[in-house]
Design a protein around this nucleic acid. Structure first.
Length: 116
DNA sequence: ATGCTGACTATGT
DNA sequence: TACATAGCCAGCA
């Protein structure tokens, strides 16, 4: 009853933030993966746009989300945030190859029990 | 209400 | 490997 409509607070963006928060340090997830885990298949774009609206310090580790190519997506805002993102990931132990790419096979987040 | 924009991804050339 | 194209959704003027 009363139907199964979802609460207004449970907007797509909120669901996305919730998933991103689960990504442990030293791991990265792709926009598409986050979308899928959040129950929004094919909406990788929304993940990026949602993260664009999140503030640094809101508790959402936005820097752990990269694109499917294992690279950091450029923002309209400028390269500043992109550089910061890479710096943070390296601090967490995520390695980048000479092309600036992360090995998703190795650092990709796999929502299975607990990542170690 | 309508239209534009934006941290994506998969596929084809 | 690089570029172009199509699909998809929410927020904002």
């Amino acid at each position: 009853m009363a139907s199964v409509r979802q609460p207004a607070e449970d907007g797509s963006w909120s669901r996305i933030y919730r998933v991103v928060r689960r990504i442990p340090a030293g791991r990265v997830a792709t926009y598409g993966h986050v979308a899928a885990v959040a129950g929004l298949p094919r909406q990788a774009r929304l993940v990026g746009y949602a993260l664009a609206g999140v503030a640094d310090g809101s508790g959402v580790p936005w820097h752990r989300v990269i694109n499917a190519q294992g690279r950091i997506s450029a923002r309209r805002d400028g390269p500043g945030a992109s550089v910061l993102q890479r710096l943070r990931l390296e601090e967490e132990g995520v390695g980048f190859d000479t092309r600036g790419r992360v090995d998703l096979e190795r650092y990709g987040w796999k929502p299975r029990s607990r990542q170690r």
